[in-house]
Design a protein around this nucleic acid. Sequence first.
RNA 1: CGGGGCGUAGUGUAACGGUAGCAUUCAUGCUUUGGGAGCAUGCGGUCCGAGUUCAAAUCUCGGCGCCCCGACCA
Length: 419
Amino acid sequence: MRQSHLFTKTRKEAPTDEVAKNAQLLIRGGFIHKEMAGVYSYLPLGLRTLNKIETIIREEMDAIGGQEIKMATLHPSEKWKQTGGWDNVDVLFKLKSRTEKEYALGQSEEEIVTPIAQEYATSYKDLPVSVYQIGQKYRDELRAKSGIMRGREFGMKDMYSFHESQEDFDRFFSITKEAYLRIFRRAGLDAKVTEASGGSFSEKLSYEFMVITDAGEDDIVYCPSCIHCANTEVAKAEAGGECPKCKKGTLAKARAAEVGNVFDLGVKYPKAFSFTYKDKDGKEQTPIVGCYGIGTTRLMGTIVEVFADEKGIVWPESVAPFNIHLILISSVEGTAKAAADALYEKFRMAGVEVLYDERDLRAGEKFADADLIGIPLRVIVSEKTLKEGKLEVKNRKTGEVQMLTETELLKTVSATLSV
RNA sequence: CGGGGCGUAGUGUAACGGUAGCAUUCAUGCUUUGGGAGCAUGCGGUCCGAGUUCAAAUCUCGGCGCCCCGACCA
């Protein structure tokens, strides 16, 4: 992508109505646009990053047998009334049509997925089964806050699984937990797992996945030596004590963001919809249901919060909108431009995602933009580098600068990409 | 939803009740070219509605919107 064609531009200052670091940087970098409190549009750079996050999630969900679907987000009120959610879920957006018919906007999809599963999972032979989707969710938050960390419309991956027995559910539950940890690791984050209550709708087991950041909304007690942590709302052990899991670390306290959660929903939803399947003996049985969520846009905000420095965003390679930011430092003679154009084509041929800054701007402005946008590797082509016969390659995260030949650079890049 | 703060150009900021100014962005031209350049010219604004007043960005009331703390948070 040539930067002169990029739909967005950067800006020096963030709007004063944004205090959250993630929203300030993402708006300044042109990743997102604020529509209203708690609602953001995703622009080319932001969407590229969000897509990468979704791809990681999709790969890991597929790997454990999840099947992707896309459910309606406009829901008939009847289904919510059938589970009691219409009156009890206070974040549910409710709306009315011209003909006074009532609808809900999806804030979670148990009410939709359960009747669908009921149609197809009619026999024990159809179980276990798990389906997931990635899409928009709507919650009527009394107060949206923290930029894209807690919005009224946001992106979420939600998966639902159906099982014959508690044992089978437990097996899948722990497989999913491991997949979740892989997802967060691949996204560059060090996530911890907490055991927490099931919330308002389930007394059964649940886990929350926490990433330490001041931008979070939860307080946790965690162990530096393992992934154990506990929400202070329910923590039995206190900070300063020994870790009850690994017995090695001394528990510490921190602010954290909940980037994912998994719940044992039991039989609540199948019961509400009279969903049964036939077991081996032809008897009707009620399946056990689990649900598994990851806030995709919140994850993106968390990554910004965790890695950003005073100059701007620092994306981990795996979720960066581009692999390389190629920067041409313009010159009077113009030979650098030809070299940079050629390099840009070479990268494209090699399948490397490049943002090519060929704009006719001064070096300082281009560098500042590059720092703000946060692409992992910066490659500079100028008369100066051409004279040396090398390219200047700067690492956004470490600031380290290397002078490489074109061949060396392509090798470095393909090595990074294959990870 | 309770409490607090704030609404002036795309963005950031000034203006005692009396000519809405500055910076930046944007447009045009010239000069510049390795860390957000310089000069010149130009476009662009008081959230909405009432009220007080000779006169309202400024004071009063109402509405709407935004932010923060709390509560809430599948």
